[in-house]
Every structure is written in C-alpha cells, then in structure tokens.
Design a protein around this nucleic acid. Structure first.
Lengths: 156, 156
DNA sequence: GCGATAATGTTGTATATGCACCATAGATTC
DNA sequence: GAATCTATGGTGCATATACAACATTATCGC
C-alpha cells in the first residue's frame, strides 16, 4: 500500500510464508504421496514417475515427446531422458512409420500394459493408504484440481 | 473378490489409474506450482525447494538435519546436499557449540532472513498466480492437507 | 524454390530426491 | 566398564526435473 513505510518485520513475513505458501505444501504432499506409491511399486521394478508416465501414455496413445510434455507439463528434455529408461525396460517403443516425419511418436508396448495389469493390486493398496493420509475430502480436492490442469478450457 | 475370474481388461485398469491416481495428480500439481514459484524467485538466485527449506528452518529455529528431515519429510541425505548449497550461499550456518554434541544444528543467517524479506513481494505474486490456477477452494484443501501432515496427532 | 520462422529432439549443466551402506558418536544394558 | 544398540551425518548410485543452447526439420510467405 505505502512504499515508504518501514519494511514489515522479517518474522511476520516468514510467518505468512510458512502459514500460507501453496508451493511448500504442494511439494510436501507430493513427496509424501510419492513415497507411498514408490514403496508399493518397488517390487515391480518401476517407480512413481515412471508409472505415471506409462499410464499417461496409454491414455494418450502414440504421441511425440512434445505432445506428452504439453499434456503432462514436463520439459521435453525430461521426457527424452525418462523415456530412454522406459524404452530400455521394454515398456514403450518407437512407433515406426507414424506421424508426418519430424516427430517420432512413442507408444506403450504389450509388456508395458501387462505390467500395469500385474501391479494394479499394489497400486490400489497405495491408493488406499493415500486416501487414509489425505482423507476423502483431500483426495477429491486434488483430483478436481489436477483434472482442471489436465483439461484446460478448450479454445472456443 | 474372486481370484479365479479372468483378469479385468487392461483398458479398464488403466482407465481407473488415469482417472483416480492420487500420486499422478499430486506430482502434476507439484510440477506446475513449482514452476510458477521458480519463475518468480529466479531473479533472487534461489529456487523453490531452497526457498521452502529456508522458510521451514526459520520456523523451526536451530535444528539438526535429522530433525528437519522428520518435520519436512525429506531424507537426511537429501538435506546433507541441499543444505550444503545453502551454506555456500550464506543463507544458513552451523550453530557452534549447540546441542549435546553429536548433532550439529543449522540455523538461518541474517542474510537468509533478509533474502526472504526482499523476495516477499515476488513470492506474493506467485501466490496470486497459484490461487488463480488452483482456485480458493483448491488452495484451502492443499493447505489443510499439508498442515495435517506437518502436525501429526501428538502422541497422547 | 528460398529465406524466415517455428517446432522437435538432444546434450550440457545444475539441482532435487531417496535408498543402501558406512563410520562415528551417544545411549543402554548387563 | 564393556558389549550392544541406536541415531546422526556422509557417500555412492540412480533417477527426476528444468533451463539454455544447439542441430535438424517442417512450415510459411512470397
């Protein structure tokens, strides 16, 4: 309001940050929740980020790194590296003669789909634990939020 | 229910995962929100995770890596490395003759507190953008969730 | 067709994050 | 007091993540 007032005490500023920062809370939740799923998925040799990417790719169908990045809000370079690991695991593959020519769409393999089917019970176990931690209310809020990010208002 | 039934179609399983996974959504939100704050904080030479740690450390007062890790849900080794960078920036320091002897508490320096005061307006700008993205409802849900994780039911 | 522009994928660099494992230093137990 | 247990901090390793810069490849405008 008034730029000439003395700066507010650092203590107050930090109290405001500690009490309200959305980023701190988002990252905290992400860390804790990721840990829950990593624990359940570990026996299958796949981790949380890889599982997420695999599911997104099944959902999207054959897609280029750039397309996946736009939908999943990840940098192209991140996908170049993460997909390389998933390729070597045989969960995904490059679709041969697809797309115009510059892009090289990737798709989930049969092995990738089978893996998802096999680990489904463990994933549900993790879901259950997450629900306990976040309560049904929290789960719904997060679901709604994320869906809003994934499906931005279509250009009319 | 019945282990002898044929496995449900992979398609259905993936649809369930894509539509309900809490981890995928938590990480997505975290990525997007972190990006918002990183953009605002960049001019100050500090990134989102470092900012979060700095705020937590002011809040906690002099604390060992182990204590910070328990409160902030981070591995001790993660803190060893992250704090090293913050030490070299002069935002935190080792408290000399504190604690019993085995632990070596770390505390935020004057420079660290000043940095928080200086970047406060940019942080509020990021808060504003986050509020637009998540809506007031989402912000409150995340805040409530995270507070629940930070303040677990005290052992009675 | 040609030059300008835009999109794609890659690599270098820096940081975040957790697990497994280790050495050390307090704390416990007898 | 010595053996054992436990907590702390550090290292090696693997992965996630983004930004900057680059070469390549379309695409557009003319």
């Amino acid at each position: 309001m008034n730029a000439d007032l003395p700066p507010e005490p650092v203590h107050d500023v930090v109290a405001e940050m500690a009490g309200e920062c959305v980023m701190m809370r988002s990252r905290l939740i992400s860390r804790v929740v990721t840990g829950i799923y990593d624990q359940e998925l570990r026996p299958f040799g796949i981790n949380s980020p890889q599982f997420a990417l695999l599911v997104v790719m099944v959902k999207m169908g054959p897609s280029s790194r750039a397309e996946i990045g736009r939908y999943h809000h990840q940098d192209r370079s991140t996908l170049t590296r993460n997909l390389k690991i998933m390729l070597s695991e045989g969960w995904i593959e490059e679709v041969p003669g697809a797309a115009g020519g510059r892009a090289r769409p990737m798709a989930v393999t049969r092995a990738g789909r089978d893996l998802l089917a096999v680990l489904a019970p463990s994933w549900r176990e993790a879901q259950k634990k997450a629900r306990v931690l976040l309560c049904e209310e929290g789960v719904q809020a997060i679901t709604k939020l994320a869906n809003g990010i994934l499906k931005p208002a279509p250009a009319v």
